[in-house]
């Protein structure tokens, strides 16, 4: 069966030296939500821009329903763009300040010639606004007249206007007020249920990912280091970096403060990617082998892949706890 989206060994080098994305492969099924998590600079946002063809990969291919997007004609690419839409992080920059809400949400339809005439456009806009709890009176409002949450809803309607099969959502709620975030997450889930859209959900927030994702891919320094179904990822993460990320999530209650796996220092720069396993400079488990040899992203359990030489060798949690207890 053909996957909806297949990224194969994607690489993106900026300015000849910055290896922002350094060999990333993953696939997405119809109706699936894949979360791409990692810290700033890990390359997750660059991956989203590559998928949206906002920037061209240095190497590697992206196939949408089996078709290589890199070899498409302009016309074919325009058609595929109807199927892949996006929601951006910043609800303030993602809407043109000189367009009204009605024009913004119907823009994709107008660009693809699916809507003709002012009156028709206005009616469609009103219908679209109603689907996310806005009303007809908002049609002629300017973006600055909306709150952050409302603006993000406009962004979501715009993304769904063409009935896409895949939506790339790059940190869609992290710029919003906490009390508004859950509204927007619910809207994203309702829309998915309604339209059967797949999500590539990019986030640094593990708790939100746990709520929304079907599968999780963890990125570190331009590579996926772990890729697993949600349940097995959160119950038994196999890569020490995933484990550290999870242990760093703030507690949900003062009595549940976690035993931390403290990573040493900061992530290295993507200009100087360490030899061997790129995580070895900060890994509490690193051995000699890790400095020499880069571990492949290999299957360690059912559908659960991790790029670590010792992924199955030790029970991770106890091992890490030992190391951190004896550490400085």
């Amino acid at each position: 069966m053909t996957k909806l989206l297949e990224a194969n060994d994607l690489r993106k080098v900026f300015g000849g030296a910055v290896r922002a994305v350094d060999g990333v492969s993953f696939s997405l099924d119809e109706r699936e939500t894949l979360a791409l998590v990692g810290e700033s600079g890990c390359g997750k946002s660059t991956v989203s821009r590559l998928i949206l063809r906002l920037t061209d990969p240095t190497e590697g291919t992206i196939r949408f329903e089996g078709q290589d997007m890199g070899r498409m004609s302009q016309r074919a690419l325009k058609e595929v763009r109807r199927e892949i839409q996006f929601v951006f992080q910043d609800p303030f920059s993602s809407l043109d300040p000189r367009m009204t809400a009605g024009d913004i949400v119907t823009e994709p339809l107008a660009v693809h010639g699916l809507i003709k005439g002012r009156a028709k456009r206005r009616d469609t806009a009103t219908d679209l606004l109603k689907t996310v709890g806005l009303s007809a009176k908002h049609v002629n409002n300017w973006p600055r007249q909306f709150s952050g949450g409302q603006r993000q809803r406009l962004g979501i309607i715009r993304a769904f206007a063409l009935g896409p099969r895949l939506i790339v959502a790059d940190e869609p709620v992290s710029a919003l007020d906490v009390s508004v975030r859950s509204q927007v997450i619910n809207i994203l889930q309702d829309m998915q249920e309604d339209k059967g859209t797949a999500y590539l959900f990019i986030s640094h927030d593990m708790a939100t990912v746990k709520h929304i994702a079907d599968r999780v891919a963890v990125m570190y320094l331009g590579k996926i280091v772990e890729l697993a179904p949600k349940s097995s990822f959160f119950s038994a993460p196999q890569h020490p970096y995933s484990e550290a990320l999870l242990s760093a999530v703030p507690a949900s209650h003062p009595d549940k403060r976690r035993e931390r796996i403290l990573l040493q220092g900061d992530p290295p720069s993507p200009v100087n990617i360490p030899s061997g396993c790129r995580f070895h400079t900060r890994c509490p488990l690193a051995q000699e082998l890790c400095k020499r040899e880069e571990p492949p992203l290999a299957q360690v359990a059912d559908n659960h892949a991790a790029a670590c030489h010792f992924a199955q060798a030790w029970p991770m949690r106890s091992r890490v706890a030992d190391t951190s207890a004896s550490g400085p």
């Binding site: 821009r49 949206l52 063809r53 906002l54 690419l77 325009k78 058609e79 763009r81 109807r82 892949i84 839409q85 996006f86 951006f88 910043d90 920059s93 993602s94 809407l95 043109d96 823009e107 994709p108 660009v111 693809h112 962004g155 715009r158 063409l162």
Partner: peptide, 10 residues
Amino acid sequence: GYVDAAIAMG
């Protein structure tokens, strides 16, 4: 973002 948005919508 809205320029990226326009490009991505074709």
